[in-house]
């Protein structure tokens, strides 16, 4: 007997739909409207078609920001995922030391993003900061305010410090969910620690790692506050990422038309990456190539 569908459930979704319409869809439609006009004043605007899109897409500074953004996100994934897995593996599984580790590792996640930027800005200054003064004392020529490489390394280390705990905690939760029977079977077979990691822990962590990669990629792709506070996008444009570029265009220069066009392009890329990750995450385990 076929099950009868109850469409009244749709009415329960209606309040959410209304809230989403006001908080997301209507503003998005407004951005689309702005992106095809030259906004000269509150009630003065001229239709320009795709002109802003053309201008933004051919902007060499934007290409630079996009490349830096992709590089930053890839570097974040390449560092944070293996590092987080390593930390998760090293964390004690039981007892008071496990609780202590969890609290200490979770601490960076509790700090507001702008405070993280401020902490690292002070920490890395060679005159008053512990980290900067230490490097200076070791004879390392380090100054994140004038050297692009130093600025990049500082932003990367700051992000690793801030967000690796998230990956580590996710991995730790995944590792705790593996039944002891697997380890007992591996012990009976005389498996090495590497074999246990390769054939038991890593496959069992697959779903957790996909979520970690998704979260870290999306978050790093939209990073704004920490680099803004730490380096202000400098020296030059060396640590100016996409969201900072957008904020400068929209708020700093008040170029609402180009900023709206750029927002939509940025949104499309975020949507594309989200969809790819969503498809990978939702792919059934028995699918070919999975």
């Amino acid at each position: 007997m076929s099950k009868r569908k109850n469409n009244r459930a749709w009415f329960l979704v209606l309040p959410t739909l209304i809230i989403v319409a006001f908080s997301a869809i209507i503003p998005l439609m407004t951005v689309v409207n702005y992106s095809v006009q030259d906004i000269l004043g509150p009630n003065t605007r001229v239709f320009v078609g795709f002109e802003w899109f053309r201008e933004v897409l051919r902007d060499a500074e934007l290409h630079g920001a996009f490349l830096r953004q992709v590089l930053f996100s890839l570097a974040i994934l390449l560092i944070q995922i293996p590092f987080g897995v390593g930390v998760g593996l090293l964390m004690p599984r039981r007892g008071w030391s496990a609780s202590l580790c969890l609290v200490i590792i979770a601490l960076p996640l509790l700090i507001p993003w702008n405070v993280v930027g401020t902490i690292w800005q002070i920490f890395c200054r060679t005159d008053i900061g512990l980290g900067g003064a230490f490097l200076d004392g070791m004879g390392v020529d380090y100054n994140y305010a004038i050297d692009p490489v130093d600025a990049w390394l500082t932003v990367l280390v700051m992000d690793v410090w801030h967000w690796t705990p998230l990956v580590a905690l996710l991995c730790y939760a995944g590792l705790r969910a593996i039944p002891d029977a697997y380890y007992q079977a591996a012990q009976i077979d005389g498996a090495s620690p590497w074999a246990v990691f390769r054939h038991i822990q890593l496959p069992k962590l697959k779903n957790v790692l996909i979520i970690a990669v998704l979260l870290r990629f999306m978050d790093s792709f939209m990073v704004y506050t920490e680099p803004f506070v730490l380096t202000g996008g400098g020296p030059g444009n060396s640590t100016t990422f996409l969201s900072q570029f957008l904020a400068r265009m929209a708020v700093g220069q008040f170029d609402l038309g180009p900023a709206a066009a750029f927002s939509l392009i940025y949104f499309l890329f975020v949507l594309l990456f989200c969809y790819i990750f969503y498809t990978v995450v939702m792919r059934p385990d028995d699918a070919p190539g999975s």
Binding site: V32, Y34, V36, N43
Partner: peptide
């Protein structure tokens, strides 16, 4: 609705 800065082209697009 004027604050949404509608144009004919975007109106047709969303329609």
């Amino acid at each position: 609705m004027s604050w949404m800065a509608w144009t004919l082209a975007t109106g047709i697009f969303f329609a």
